[in-house]
Write a protein that binds this DNA or RNA. Sequence first.
DNA 1: GTCATAGTGAGAACGATTCTCGTTATTGAC
DNA 2: GTCAATAACGAGAATCGTTCTCACTATGAC
Lengths: 131, 131
Amino acid sequence: MAQTGVVRRSTRQRTVVRELVAELDTLSSAQDIHQLLRSRGESVGLSTVYRNLQALTEDGEVDSVRNEAGEVLYRQCSPKHHHHLVCRSCGKAVELTGPTVEKWAKDSADKHGFTDVSHTLEIFGLCADCG
Amino acid sequence: MAQTGVVRRSTRQRTVVRELVAELDTLSSAQDIHQLLRSRGESVGLSTVYRNLQALTEDGEVDSVRNEAGEVLYRQCSPKHHHHLVCRSCGKAVELTGPTVEKWAKDSADKHGFTDVSHTLEIFGLCADCG
DNA sequence: GTCATAGTGAGAACGATTCTCGTTATTGAC
DNA sequence: GTCAATAACGAGAATCGTTCTCACTATGAC
């Protein structure tokens, strides 16, 4: 999955996707991002948007989470591990870090003999503006 | 969503689905459950399995979560709020409760002015048998 | 400039889930 | 038990997000 040794070229499309994602303060789907680029007059194929979002995710430049409907949403995030508080209505996302939660997850896994553990935690609600 | 006032009839298919889910100690997808029923000689349509799993979920009889691939998995669970520690390999699931986590999620949401809050937390790993 | 090949994009393919709609079977009323 | 109203069924079509295919393009090492 890490594509070791593969050279990553820098293309107009990748740059454009990266820049747009950097501007966003909301979690957005690949399709949203594709639409946005189109509406700005950038010509980028949908497959390419998907590909680049995946590549950027692999490289750790953006974060991806799944919403309640099962869609994958992307956002540029701080590099350290964190979670999101996401507005169900407008998509606004706040980063959260929770050392307590991390520890609890790790301890629970250990206690039951689980290894190679990862966890997902997302909080959904209505933000002050949408509530 | 709550289908208020609609009478829920008891059919062979619903019973069979409910009983199978009750036996499972692993999180299983609708398709898995459909296959299992088929292999036992129970004739149940795929749509019906989906419909009944949804109905049972609405009625609070089973729990549903989404795995890392985005599929919806079902399992009969204790009625109180909890989370899962799930084996990525065999699907075995352990129920966890984490008052600390609940509190942290609630507090974080409050702090940022979010209302109508829900959260999802799933821990994935390899169980002792599969590790 | 040349070349090997990573990247692109339009459209096809996929896979989980949902919907459609004619048929079947449950349930409450009699 | 019979009947009527309608919830539920199920086979197949439709959806929808995402991934794949493949001929074509453009990057980057030389």
